[in-house]
C-alpha cells in the first residue's frame, strides 16, 4: 500500500545503524538549507540520489517517480515566487511582463534567481528526506526520536498510529474494492455517497477496534505504558568516517561557492 514504507524494509541499507542514516540525512539537509549556494543544493540532490540508488539499491526509475511526487507544489510555488504582481510596476524592472487590467504581471531576473534557488534547495532537502524514509523503517525513526528525548506520549501515539494505519488502510481498500465492483464510483453522485459510506463505516470500525484493543491489552495487564523491544544495531566506524568526510566536503563546497554558511543562518 505504501511504497516508501515497503522500501524502508527491503533496501540494502536496512541493517545499517539508524542513527548513522539519521545523522547523514539531517546533517546534509542542514548544510543544504543553510547554504545559499545553488551548486551545493545540486550536489546534495546528486549525492542523495547516488546513496539511494547505488547504496540502498532502490531502482532508479522508482526513485525518479518518487521525486516527482512533491513536484506539483514545488513548480507552482516556485513559479509564484518568480512572478511579481503590482499596480505600480514599471516595464524596465522586468525581464518580461504584461498587463492585466490595472495590474502589471512580470518576471524580474533577480526573482528568477531566487526562485531557482528555492527550487534546488527544496529538491535537495526532499532527497535528504527520501534517503531517510526509503532506508529507515518508521519504527527505527521512532526509536531515534525516543533517544532524542521527544515526549514519551507523543512517541507512543506515533507508534500506535503507525501500527493502525495498515489495519485501517486494508479495511478501507477492501471496502473500496467491493464498492467499485458494484459500480459505486460510476457517477459523481454515487461516488460521493459511496465515499461517505466508506468513511463512516471505517470510523465505526475504528471505534470498535479501539475497544477490542483496550480489552486485549487490559487482559495483559496494561496500565498506561507500552514497552517494546528494539533491534540492536552495530555502529560502523567506517560509515561514520565516510559521513564526516562527505559532510565536510559539502560544507567546504557551500562555503567556497556561496560563502554564506553561517551568515545565512544569522540573517
Amino acid at each position: 500500500m505504501f511504497q516508501i514504507d515497503s522500501y524502508a524494509y527491503s533496501n540494502r541499507l536496512y541493517s545499517t545503524h539508524p542513527g548513522e542514516k539519521f545523522a547523514f540525512s539531517a546533517a546534509t539537509m542542514t548544510i543544504c538549507l543553510a547554504s545559499s549556494s545553488m551548486i551545493t543544493a545540486l550536489a546534495v540532490t546528486l549525492l542523495m540520489a547516488g546513496a539511494v540508488v547505488l547504496q540502498a539499491g532502490i531502482p532508479w526509475r522508482q526513485y525518479l517517480k518518487l521525486m516527482t511526487l512533491p513536484a506539483s507544489f514545488l513548480l507552482v510555488g516556485v513559479a509564484t515566487v518568480a512572478v511579481s504582481v503590482s499596480v505600480s510596476g514599471q516595464p524596465e524592472m522586468y525581464l518580461f511582463w504584461f498587463r492585466a487590467g490595472s495590474f502589471s504581471i512580470g518576471v524580474r531576473d533577480q526573482d528568477l534567481a531566487v526562485a531557482a534557488g528555492i527550487f534546488l534547495k527544496s529538491l535537495g532537502a526532499t532527497s535528504c528526506l527520501y534517503f531517510l524514509s526509503l532506508t529507515t523503517p518508521l519504527v527505527e525513526i521512532i526509536s531515534i526520536l525516543r533517544k532524542l528525548k521527544a515526549p514519551t506520549l507523543f512517541i507512543e501515539l506515533m507508534s500506535l498510529v503507525y501500527r493502525f494505519i495498515f489495519v485501517l488502510a486494508e479495511t478501507a481498500e477492501k471496502i473500496y474494492t467491493s464498492q467499485s465492483s458494484r459500480l459505486g464510483y460510476r457517477t459523481l453522485k454515487n461516488g460521493y455517497f459511496s465515499l461517505s459510506q466508506l468513511i463512516s463505516s471505517l470510523f465505526v470500525r475504528t471505534l470498535y477496534r479501539s475497544r477490542e484493543l483496550s480489552k486485549t491489552l487490559s487482559a495483559r495487564c496494561y496500565t498506561g505504558e507500552i514497552r517494546v523491544l528494539e533491534t540492536r544495531h552495530d555502529i560502523s566506524r567506517r560509515n561514520i568516517v565516510v559521513i564526516i568526510v562527505l559532510e565536510l566536503l559539502l560544507a567546504a563546497l557551500a562555503l567556497y561557492d556561496g560563502g554564506g554558511l553561517i551568515g545565512r543562518i544569522n540573517s
Partner: peptide
C-alpha cells in the same frame, strides 16, 4: 482513562487514511 490512548492512536491513523482517500 488509559483506554483513550488506543482510541487516539486509531483516530490518528483514521485521519491519515482519510487524507489518502
Amino acid at each position: 482513562k488509559p483506554d483513550l490512548k488506543m482510541l487516539l492512536g486509531l483516530v490518528g491513523a483514521f485521519a491519515f487514511i482519510l487524507s489518502a482517500l
